[in-house]
């Protein structure tokens, strides 16, 4: 454990989506602490609220979603209390984000270089020339071949992997303290995926940026992360060191997730899935939201929401089995 030096602390975060069908409780009473310099993975199924949580950190929850409650302390400042203008100064310069699909993340009408320099110019009082100089350096850092020519290329002239490199260079252009990568490889070819992960790992080491990876790919987690939080239906159910989590998973949901990974060594084994489906988030089940799918469910699970319990060595779990 790095201990103490936290960069981001989320306390009691609630994000609700006000739809016609009802209020979708996408994130409910979520607590999370991320330490400076680490690579942190946020895992869970599609729709469990992991992207929304990190979008909330940037205060860019898409409508009709709204941050209802909670505190998001970044570097000692509660982001939810900042005026919008101050928040814009933080976005892109102190906290940045890379998206799942690089093909739609860039404005098709502007060159890659323009979109990089405009970020620099929005935050720093530098000349256009030095901004382009910086963009060229960044393109070299993210290993874009022929960076000079690529600066003048439009997004449609670049491949998917190349676009993700451009997006990454934009996200890194102002040396952010926190970089959120929202499934940065899902939309890419497998070989390109490995390259992008390699790139992120290198950049993380070189610049000491705190990296939050949002993913549902346990392979990526094992490969990249120092610590992991598992989310289920809008809440964190387990947090642990990556070795601890894979070696000694405590929450029944985490156990299920790990059993669902195909492995090369155990050959004649059927892949196991977690029975049931993700709960209705408009009227989630009472008590522990996982209890309808849990093989260890007890009476108390249907009544009471489990609290987060510290099992030692920073291993936290929210499950009645351990109380």
């Amino acid at each position: 454990m790095r201990g103490g030096d936290e960069i981001l602390r989320i306390e009691g975060l609630c994000v609700y989506f006000y739809t016609y069908a009802g209020v979708v409780r996408a994130v409910e009473d979520l607590n999370l602490t991320i330490y400076r310099g680490e690579t942190f993975a946020l895992v869970g199924e599609t729709g469990c609220g992991k992207s929304v949580t990190m979008r909330a950190v940037l205060r860019l929850v898409p409508p009709p979603g709204r941050i209802v409650k909670g505190r998001i302390i970044f570097d000692g400042v509660d982001l939810l209390k900042l005026p919008e203008k101050e928040m814009r100064k933080i976005r892109g310069s102190k906290i940045s984000m890379v998206f799942q699909d690089p093909n739609t993340a860039l404005d098709p009408l502007y060159t890659a270089g323009y979109q990089t320099t405009e970020t620099i110019l929005a935050h720093r009082k530098v000349s256009k020339k030095s901004a382009w100089q910086r963009a060229l350096e960044l393109f070299k850092v993210v290993e874009i071949p022929e960076p000079k020519r690529r600066l003048r290329a439009y997004p449609h002239e670049l491949s998917g992997g190349m676009k993700q490199r451009v997006v990454t260079s934009i996200a890194l252009s102002l040396n952010p303290k926190l970089l959120i990568a929202d499934e940065p490889t899902t939309a890419l070819d497998v070989t390109i995926q490995a390259q992008i992960l390699e790139l992120l790992r290198d950049l993380q080491r070189k610049y000491g940026v705190t990296l939050v990876m949002i993913t549902h790919n346990m392979g990526v987690v094992a490969d990249m992360a120092d610590r992991v939080a598992v989310m289920y239906a809008g809440s964190v159910v387990e947090v642990a060191d990556v070795y601890e989590l894979f070696g000694n998973p405590l929450h029944p949901y985490t156990k299920g997730l790990l059993r669902a990974i195909p492995s090369l060594t155990s050959r004649n084994e059927r892949l196991q899935s977690i029975p049931g489906t993700v709960p209705n988030m408009i009227r989630p089940p009472p008590g522990c939201k996982f209890h309808p799918r849990c093989e260890y469910a007890m009476d108390v699970c249907k009544r009471e929401r489990p609290r987060m319990i510290d099992m030692g060595k920073g291993h936290l779990v929210a499950c009645h089995l351990y109380s």
């Binding site: 860019l60 814009r88 100064k89 940045s96 699909d101 929005a122």
Partner: peptide, 17 residues
């Protein structure tokens, strides 16, 4: 509603930009 607008906001550009 397109993704790149979200990214423009992530970059911290002003409303006008």
């Amino acid at each position: 509603s397109s993704d790149f607008v979200i990214f423009l906001n992530v970059k911290g550009l002003s409303r006008l930009s």
